[in-house]
């Protein structure tokens, strides 16, 4: 019982899934809403991935949709063109979906390595420019490759992703990022973010740590790409444009850069917001843009900057714990946060 109190996430996380699942079964949430929830899941994975680079390591990747595109197209190639997963029995489909997802992740990670290796050595904002360029180059390459549908787009990808699998991958991603941040690897990255010269003289091989984080991030982005491809069943190169990359940046910075919980909530809220504002027709994105500027102006650390859900049990960073596991835990963890605003 005591263990359960400390680890309430073991109950709460499945509970969240069961609730959404039951709402779907009983037609309280229609397919459209479920689709939005699934896309929000994909966006959460992407924002987590971006947080590893921009939040934890302090490097600026502004073309992350490129890695998502690689993941999406590689996994779609795998499940549609190389193996025709649509014609398989359900168990095999699941296996091939997972394989396709991993293939997508590895494909993206390879590109992450090729991009990160030469650029992360350089001091300054070159990663931003090169990732921006990478996203657009990938898009151009896809546009002229007939094997993946070129500029017409790739249709007929089997619908293998489900609410369940997206939920599983969101949870896995969150825990991977948590484990990363709360380790010597993550602390090395945080040190680089805070002061690269000092990190170097503290024995941290800065380029190695940066490349590791970047490749991990690209891998996760590739997984998000696979989820995306197998949810929407249609891929078009222009979907992964620079605008898509800025969406993830917006989720991350509005949510709270550096905070895992912030990136979860930012991605979820801002994916849902335009749908909630749908009644305002063409004004919804005006409000969205205005809101973003207001958030950045009045809360530069983001909505949940410097805060984490208590259930993540993050130790690094002196974070204020918020969240639902406090309900079950009599003692709340009190972390002295002398001045969380001044710290970031």
């Amino acid at each position: 019982m005591n263990w359960l109190r400390k680890n309430s996430e073991v109950i709460i996380l499945p509970l969240i899934y069961v609730v959404i699942f039951l709402l779907q079964k009983n037609k309280i949430l229609n397919n459209y809403v479920i689709q939005i929830i699934m896309l929000a899941g994909v966006n959460i994975i992407m924002t987590q991935s971006l947080n590893l680079v921009n939040g934890m390591t302090g490097q600026n990747s502004i073309g992350h949709a490129g890695f998502m595109a690689v993941g999406a197209y590689v996994s779609a190639l795998f499940s549609k063109i190389i193996f025709n997963a649509a014609a398989m029995p359900p168990t095999m489909q699941t296996i091939f979906f997972l394989l396709a997802t991993i293939a997508g992740g590895i494909g993206a990670a390879i590109f992450g390595f090729l991009i990160g290796m030469p650029t992360l050595r350089l001091k300054g904002d070159y990663l931003a420019i090169v990732t921006l360029g990478f996203g657009e180059v990938i898009r151009s390459i896809i546009r002229i490759t007939p094997a993946v549908g070129a500029a017409r787009g790739l249709t007929g990808i089997p619908k293998l992703a489900s609410l369940f699998w997206i939920f599983v991958f969101v949870v896995i991603t969150i825990y991977i990022c948590r484990n990363y941040m709360d380790s010597a690897y993550g602390r090395g990255c945080l040190a680089i973010r805070d002061n690269e010269v000092a990190a170097d003289t503290m024995g941290i091989n800065t380029s190695k740590y940066k490349v590791q984080a970047f490749v991990t991030s690209a891998f996760i982005a590739g997984i998000a790409g696979s989820m995306y491809a197998h949810t929407l069943r249609y891929l078009h190169p222009d979907v992964f444009s620079y605008t898509k990359s800025t969406d993830f940046l917006v989720y991350l910075y509005a949510g709270g850069v550096g905070s895992i919980s912030g990136s979860i909530l930012g991605a979820f809220i801002l994916t849902a917001l335009p749908e909630v504002l749908r009644f305002m027709n063409e004004w919804r994105l005006v409000i969205y843009g205005g809101l973003l500027v207001i958030i950045i102006l009045f809360r530069p650390v983001g909505m949940f900057g410097g805060k984490e859900f208590a259930f993540l049990k993050l130790k690094t960073g002196g974070i204020q714990h918020i969240g639902f596991s406090n309900l079950f835990q009599r003692k709340t963890k009190k972390t002295i946060v002398a001045n969380e605003e001044a710290s970031r």
Partner: peptide, 20 residues
């Protein structure tokens, strides 16, 4: 040149990174 965004304890732990 401290790691200003980290706590005092984390600052020291960060210096252990390469010996982990």
């Amino acid at each position: 040149r401290l790691f200003h965004g980290a706590t005092v304890l984390d600052n020291v732990k960060m210096a252990h990174s390469f010996k982990t």
